[in-house]
Computed example of a mutant assay.
Amino acid sequence: MPGNTSFWRDPVLPHVESRRACRSRACYKPHSHPTYSIGAVDAGGSIFTGSKDGKVALGNGSLVLVPAGCVHACNPLPDAHWSYQMLHLDAQWLHTHVPRLDASSASVLHEPVLYAQFCAMNALLFSPASPAAKQEALLALLHACADASGASPLPSHAARIPMQLRPVVQQLQSQPLASLAQLAELAGMSRYQLIRAFRAATGMTPHAYQLNLGVNRARSGLQAGSALADIACELGFADQSHLQRVFKAHAGITPGRYRG
Rank of each mutant, 00 (worst) to 15 (best):
H143Q: 13
F126Y: 10
N122Y: 04
E136Q: 12
A146C: 11
I161M: 10
P128C: 06
A146V: 05
E136L: 12
H157P: 15
P153I: 02
H143L: 07
A140P: 14
F118Y: 13
K134G: 01
L139A: 13
E136D: 11
L142G: 04
A140L: 15
S156G: 12
F118M: 05
F126R: 09
F118R: 04
L138E: 02
A140H: 15
M121R: 10
L139D: 04
S156D: 10
A148Y: 00
L139G: 09
A129I: 00
S127F: 09
L138M: 09
G150Q: 01
A123M: 06
L141Q: 05
S152G: 12
A140Y: 14
A151T: 00
A159H: 07
I161A: 10
A120R: 15
H143C: 12
P128L: 05
F118A: 03
A140F: 11
A140N: 15
G150T: 01
N122T: 10
A123W: 12
A148V: 00
D147K: 10
S127N: 09
A151F: 04
Q135D: 12
A129N: 02
P155W: 00
Q135S: 07
A159T: 08
S127P: 08
A140R: 15
A129F: 03
A123F: 05
S127I: 05
A158C: 11
L142D: 03
S152I: 02
C119W: 09
S130F: 06
A146M: 12
L138G: 03
L124T: 07
F118Q: 02
D147G: 02
F126T: 04
M121N: 06
P131T: 06
M121L: 12
L154Q: 14
S127H: 10
R160E: 03
F118C: 02
C145S: 05
S130N: 08
L138S: 05
L125N: 11
L141A: 08
S130A: 12
R160F: 01
H157F: 11
S127L: 06
A159L: 10
P155S: 01
S149V: 06
A148D: 07
C119I: 11
A120G: 11
M121D: 09
A132N: 11
A148I: 00
D147T: 09
P155E: 00
R160C: 06
A159M: 05
A129E: 06
A133C: 05
P153W: 09
F118T: 02
A159G: 06
H143I: 03
A120V: 10
F118V: 01
A137W: 07
A137L: 11
A151S: 14
H143M: 12
P131Y: 08
A123Y: 08
A129L: 01
A140Q: 15
A123E: 14
H157D: 07
F126I: 02
A140G: 14
A137E: 05
K134S: 06
S149G: 11
A132I: 11
M121Y: 12
L154I: 03
A123S: 13
A144M: 01
A148K: 05
A159R: 07
G150V: 01
I161D: 09
A132V: 13
A132P: 05
S130E: 15
F126H: 14
L139W: 04
S149K: 05
R160I: 01
I161V: 15
M121E: 08
